[in-house]
Amino acid sequence: MPLLQIKNLCVSFDTSVGAFMAVKGIDMSIEPREVLAIVGESGSGKSVSMLAVMGLLPKTATVTADRMAFNGVDLLGLTGEQRRKIIGRDIAMIFQEPMASLNPCFTVGFQIEEVLRVHMGMDRAQRRARAIELMQQVGIAEPAERLGSYPHQMSGGQCQRVMIAIAIACNPKLLIADEPTTALDVTIQKQILDLLMRLQAEHGMGLIMITHNMGVVAETADRVIVQYKGRKMEEADVLSLFESPKSNYTKALLSALPDNATGDRLPTISDFALDPEGATA
């Protein structure tokens, strides 16, 4: 049974000029222990579709799907309370801006322990012991002392480690990472990716990696979904995607990598016959 199964997911936003379709019928599924990368540029709907799974979209969004099931449980049919029992515990998410996603008013220790209190019902001593263990797992030195730090006292890379600690606190079955390294330096990016891959293997999590960086895809994914303007352009295992991309959009993306530059100019999207509406050309 797939861990997460989505069929024909559509998300539209009410705007002053009518409904805007951000996601136009996406199908996807992820198996336990699998690393799935969703690639696309801004506006491709890659974050929005995952926020829809998490139920984090604003009220202006309308989410419809033929099926959206986690571990066989239909997410759309659940009440808010039932859904909150799954979100944050069995499905966790980390975001792009580590500095912005932690609360500046509370210590990181408080923020890690909060998850444990809400979802695991641990007492104070258990929470603290578990928080120290988590800080160790994500590679923060002197974990007991650092629990008393505020987010502004830590670097961007350390904040992202804390976010990961919060996300894996309840041993989730599925971790969704939304551009987890985009705001970080390359050397820190490498450390965070290594950490995510290690945790994924150790805990046997499913991992959905949302990114626009083809290098990150190549270094982490088992399977890749390429999205463009709310539609799925291509789905393939990582090797065949890079070796023999099928859709024109994927070809365009790959050739726009400066690594692959041949000659003086980089090919751009306009050099490929792409339907501007985003249908597979």
Binding site: T187, K190, L193, V217, A218, E219, L239, E243
Partner: peptide, 24 residues
């Protein structure tokens, strides 16, 4: 260090990574 940290998007590196993962 900087070069080593830069993600590689070529087919050879992907093959190497997948082989390593299989072995592990």
């Amino acid at each position: 260090t900087l070069f080593a940290a830069t993600p590689r998007a070529d087919v050879e590196s992907i093959k190497a990574r997948l082989a390593k993962k299989k072995a592990a």
